[in-house]
Amino acid sequence: MEAWELELVARAQKGDRKAFTRLVIEHQNRVFSYLYRMLGNAYEAEEVAQEVFIAAFRFISGFRGEGSLCTWLLRIASNMYKNRIRYNVRRKRSQESCIDDKVEQPDYRPIGERPDNPEALVATQQMEVALHEAISRLPEDFREVLVLRDIELLSYEQIQELTGLAEGTVKSRIHRARSMLTRLMSGHLDGEELI
């Protein structure tokens, strides 16, 4: 952790809300992005991200600065995500009797810079949608490490710290997730890239 972040954390631990706001600004994209890729739904990801920061505000006094704040926040996000999934499963079960079975499509949210050329824009969007859907179809354990490594660009050590898994397991899961994704994206992989 850098000095400025340590200082903000120390101030936030004393109840300085402005310092905490700075920390939220600093980490909101990473937390939201992780939740969005894990949940596959932007609205739900925003809701859970709020819960993550509220929990962080409550428990920041217990943060000792041994790991990075980002990893600490992502660990909270991971726990909140698991709680949300359990809640969604319970809710789905209770609604099963009155709602027809339908496959929930992940909600796609365009990101990053968009190409000016309309054809390229359409192709990029199609590729993003396909990739987003393919990621959401990965098993949860594999999806998590893939998102942390290839989207959040965390190091293996950070992923180990966050998930509590051994290095070999982390690497193996990442490889298997990438391989599954390669298979899922086989129809789209013809040398094309997003932009």
Binding site: N29, V31, S33, R37, E46, I111, H132, L146, L194
Partner: peptide, 11 residues
């Protein structure tokens, strides 16, 4: 491709 997708900005 995944890395190009990159982090999604928070609303």
């Amino acid at each position: 491709l995944i890395r190009q997708l990159g982090p999604s900005p928070a609303p």
